[in-house]
Design a protein around this nucleic acid. Structure first.
Length: 605
RNA sequence: GGGGUCGUAGUUAAGUUGGUUAUAACGCCGGCCUGUCACGCCGGAGGGCGUGGGUUCAAGUCCCAUCGGCCCCGCCA
């Protein structure tokens, strides 16, 4: 041990020497029986050692997979002796000969199970501490996995995800290059914009008391590039939003950002459908039928309760307000009279749902503001239902007809404001589909959502706010409503939804200053406000801005769907926790008083 | 900001109505073993139960607070 440093140096020199003389010939997982007889040099990690006293087996792993390497005692004392020292995750280089495994010794669970490598030389290039968790399928607490993310990333599943993500990015770049797009980088240190999400701020040292913001998206810059005449732009770019996290939301995420000039919605959608087809073809070998289906925002909400409907299954929402508004059920009467709606969904042949399950579903919809969930089990002649007694036979019949309900189905009713009804039934629909196993995991259900409202009333801000962003063009024919009924103005915006996940969204932008001014006015932004916040864009619009529009895809979410990942963390190399912390690097963390002083900042809490 | 859930050896988990030295599997260490592939066999070490209070004769088990992971609402497109 006292010679530790010296011997480490020796080892390092030896390793360097080894690498100078020996180049890797193959990846472990690529070897096949056709390689039999070939001498190979492999480098990787010892996944497992099986020491039989005589013969020793080691599963050698690299990014391609694993192969069994064999150390025979008769291969020589030094190699065999070294092999005894191998432990989990030691870094090895071996020279050996591929051979077909002896009769009956093959392992059908391995791609390389037909063969093995008989080792003639072994180099232990580095040792390893015992890993803090096993890399097997066994689920380990995510806090430990994130702390040792570099080890977690040795798992084949995560490697597969990141390789696929890289393929998606490559297919994207190819597609845009083939279609005449230019990739332009836009600044990360930019100006805070008030609309939309909370900004991440970066203090300026040179202009004390002033701040940059990290971009929520390159929105304004890509529009400026259109004004400059680049005509077709794209960028694969990080975006930052300081909002709370979810299973599919990280504070920094990646967009495939696109903008085009002299186009309409149709041109953009067609171009983006081509992108989707190219990505799925190149990365998964799957054909996408084009053109993709479309649904208006209004239809999506009324039929599925959400603007990101999962179309892999049916169970649509049915409006029963007209049928039940005069029924004997007082609650339904009152809701209908006060402008609310009564809607229902039907779970087909859902007898596996127990009475306890049904009661539990009330708690489920309560999260979305529903004060109750009525249900009815449809029998041959009647219903088993707490509310059955309130209805006339004719009403029961009409409801059953509206829903095409058959014996064995269960109907769920929610009566409330349209927003609460759609929200709770839309989410209940998803919940039931998962519970009843209605979703084909291999299905790909795309849909465009069109005709979004340009703006929505915000109760918290007591004004209309942009649904998309304030540069979204309204439908020209709706312009007169901008003053009289702003909530009814439709936007030339479109989202692309895949399997119930919004994977992209965009719009045709306003390219004329007068229209932009009207929209700002409807949003309650004064000329002065607008000028302070977006002055440079407004200026640009006055210098011959072409008609333009675009959209952005969420690369993380797209990758999630394509890898069947349940969490966005499974498609990001170094993700953050729900508290937006990086357990690996321990960010965020306090900084020195000197750093704060240099920025003229003071911590006040 | 709110709701839910979890935190016990390196890891994954068990731990009855609070009651003597806190279990198991895997991993780890040592020994044996020439064909295994989650190798096998024998032996061994390892934690005081996220943290801090409190109740009690007695707390992993009860109470309060706090920290952290995950899911959700709000927020966010």
């Amino acid at each position: 041990m006292q010679n530790d440093i010296t011997s480490k140096r020796e080892v390092n020199r030896f390793v360097a020497d080894f690498l100078t003389k020996n180049k890797r010939t193959h990846y472990c997982g690529d070897l096949r029986s056709s390689d039999a007889g070939r001498e190979v040099i492999l480098m990787g990690w010892a996944q497992r050692r099986r020491d039989h006293g005589g013969v020793i087996f080691v599963d050698l792993r690299d990014r391609s997979g694993i192969v069994q390497v064999v150390f025979n005692p008769d291969a020589g004392e030094s190699v065999h002796g070294q092999a005894h020292k191998i432990r989990s995750e030691f870094v090895l280089a071996i020279k050996g000969t591929v051979r077909i495994r002896p009769e009956g010794m093959t392992n059908p669970d391995l791609k390389t199970g037909e063969i093995e490598v008989i080792t003639s030389e072994l180099e232990i290039m580095n040792e390893s501490k015992t890993p803090p968790f096993s890399f097997d399928e066994e689920e380990t607490n995510e806090n430990i996995r994130l702390k040792y993310r570099y080890l977690d990333l040795r798992r084949p599943a995560l490697q597969r995800n990141l390789f696929l993500r890289s393929k998606i990015a490559a297919a994207t770049r190819n597609y845009f290059a083939e279609n005449g797009f230019i990739e332009v980088e836009t600044p990360f240190l930019t100006k805070s914009t008030p609309e939309g999400a909370r900004d991440y701020l970066v203090p300026s040292r040179i202009s004390q008391g002033s701040f940059y913001a990290l971009p929520q998206s390159p929105q304004i810059f890509k529009q400026l590039l259109m004004v400059s005449g680049f005509d077709r732009y794209y960028q694969i770019v990080k975006c930052f939003r300081d909002e709370d996290l979810r299973a599919d939301r990280q504070p920094e995420f990646t967009q495939i950002d696109v903008e085009m000039s002299f186009i309409t919605e149709e041109d953009i959608m067609q171009m983006m459908e081509g992108l989707m087809a190219a990505i799925f073809k190149k990365c998964l070998g799957r054909e996408i039928a084009l053109p993709l289906p479309r649904l208006t925002y209004h239809d999506a909400i009324s039929r599925y309760g959400k603007d990101n409907p999962d179309l892999r299954f049916g169970m649509e929402l049915t409006d029963l307000t007209e049928i039940v508004k005069n029924s004997g059920f007082k609650l339904f009467q009152e809701v209908a009279a006060s402008g609310g709606v009564i809607k229902a969904i039907k779970a087909e042949q859902a007898a596996i749902l127990s009475r306890k399950d049904l009661d539990g579903l009330s708690d489920f919809v309560a999260v979305y503001g529903a004060k109750g969930l009525a249900w009815a089990k449809v029998n041959a002649a009647d219903w088993t239902s707490p509310i059955y007694k309130f209805f006339q036979p004719a009403e029961v019949e009409q409801i059953a007809k509206a829903l095409s309900a058959k014996e064995g189905d269960i109907i769920f009713f929610v009566a409330d404001t349209p927003h609460v009804v759609n929200d709770s039934l839309g989410n209940l629909r998803l919940h039931l589909a998962k519970k009843l196993n209605l979703i084909d995991p291999e299905a790909l259900a795309f849909t465009w959502i069109t005709e979004f409202p340009l703006m929505e009333y915000s109760d918290s801000e007591k004004r209309f706010v942009s649904t998309h962003h304030p540069f979204t063009s309204p439908f020209l024919e709706d312009l007169p409503k901008l003053k009289s009924d702003p909530g009814k103005v439709r936007a030339r915006a479109y989202d692309l939804v895949l399997n119930g996940s919004e994977i992209g969204g965009g719009s045709i932008r306003i390219h004329r200053k007068d229209v932009q001014a009207q929209v700002f006015a409807a949003l309650g932004l004064s000329d002065e406000d607008a000028r302070t916040k977006f002055g440079f864009l407004l200026d640009a619009l006055e210098y011959g801005a072409p008609p333009h529009g675009g959209l952005a895809f969420g690369l993380d979410r797209l990758t999630m769907i394509m890898t069947h990942a349940e969490s966005i963390r499974d498609v990001i190399a170094f993700p953050k926790t729900q508290k937006a912390a990086c357990l690996l690097s321990d960010a965020p963390s306090p900084v020195s008083i000197e750093q704060l002083m240099e920025l003229s900042l003071k911590i006040v809490t």
